[in-house]
């Protein structure tokens, strides 16, 4: 016995098919692992020569062989943190309006426009930032802030137009749609009972959203912000065009800065020595690791919420 009476002829085909699917999937996994491995191998020379000291050294002078990543790490973090601070406020408020308050006739086109904001290529943001926002910053916004708050080190010194604050504003604009779109999904996912209970207690429209809906959606909204932060950290071209590209750590937001991504963009094709190239790849590896951590955190946050919603 044992042998089935009917042996399908197509068994070979199915096995081949499953094999092809498996192969492509493992190839994809190998590609992702390879991405990390290749960046690590490319930066090995720099890691071997400078070690971890490289991360805290603040002098960047490729000609004399001084490579310190601190100004870039500083510029990347400061510009992204300011950007997410602005984008979180605007994005969450916009999401609340679109999900809770706006009449459908307004909500739909408004949501469409905000989503298209994410589709604008970063080189166009950079172009607009460089030739429209930066001059306005130099002649109007900057002086206005300085006349009121110039005593703060944050707003001291000459205003070039391009600089940390301009870059942060452009980044904020670029990540607002991410915050708004994902937050909106989570706000809409909050159970109707929560709203009804709050309204039944006599809460106003705003109080319902502020005290019942937003807290219920909080982990998801937080995940959206972390995801948006990840986008800001890795944004290259727009930042490069408006941040001023000076590897210095300055207290003033009007001063030019530099980011990890920008220095790679600007100097990679001009890098002459092996150590120089390897150092820039090392900065890329650093950026890669940061983005992996940030994105993984965002996914885990949002995943928890989704599971809670499904279990309810």
């Amino acid at each position: 016995m044992g042998e089935p009476a009917f042996r399908p002829r197509y068994r070979v085909g199915d096995r081949l098919f499953a094999w092809a699917l498996n192969l492509s999937t493992w190839f994809y996994v190998a590609l992702i692992v390879g991405l990390f491995t290749v960046l690590l191998a490319g930066s090995w020379l720099a890691i071997k020569s400078f070690g971890l000291h490289f991360l805290v050294a603040s002098s960047w002078d490729p000609v004399t062989g001084h490579f310190g990543a601190l100004p870039f790490i500083f510029g990347t973090i400061v510009s992204s943190v300011i950007a997410i601070a602005i984008a979180a406020v605007v994005g969450i408020a916009a999401a609340a309006y679109l999900a809770e308050f706006a009449p459908p006739l307004i909500a739909r086109p408004l949501a469409f426009l905000i989503e298209l904001l994410a589709a604008v290529p970063s080189v166009v943001y950079g172009l607009w930032g460089l030739f429209v926002l930066a001059p306005v910053m130099r002649s109007a916004i900057g002086p206005a802030i300085q006349s009121k708050l110039g005593w703060l080190p944050l707003f001291s010194g000459p205003i070039y137009g391009v600089g940390m604050l301009t870059a942060s504003l452009i980044l904020a604009l670029m990540i607002v749609p991410t915050v708004a779109a994902i937050s909106r999904d989570f706000i809409e996912g909050v159970a109707v009972d929560q709203r009804e209970a709050m309204l039944a207690l006599g809460a106003t429209t705003w109080e319902t959203v502020r005290r019942a809906v937003l807290p219920a959606a909080r982990p998801g909204i937080f995940g959206a912000c972390v995801l948006a932060l990840g986008r800001a950290l890795g944004e290259t071209i727009a930042t490069t065009m408006v941040i001023g590209n000076r590897p210095a750590i300055s207290a003033s937001l009007f001063a030019p800065g530099y980011t990890l991504a920008s220095v790679i963009a600007n100097e990679f094709t001009e890098a002459t020595t092996q150590v120089y190239i390897s150092t820039l790849i090392g900065l890329g590896l650093l950026l890669f690791v940061i983005s992996i951590v940030v994105n993984a955190a965002a996914r885990i946050l949002m995943h928890t919420v989704l599971r809670n919603v499904e279990e309810r």
Binding site: V38, L227, G234, T236, F268, F288, S291, I292, A298, R299
Partner: peptide, 24 residues
Amino acid sequence: SIRFLSDVLAGVPSIAIGLFAYVV
């Protein structure tokens, strides 16, 4: 885990992927 890895890859800065292409 493949899905998770893929989602995370979607967030890797394009410049890092450019470096990958350069080295390879």
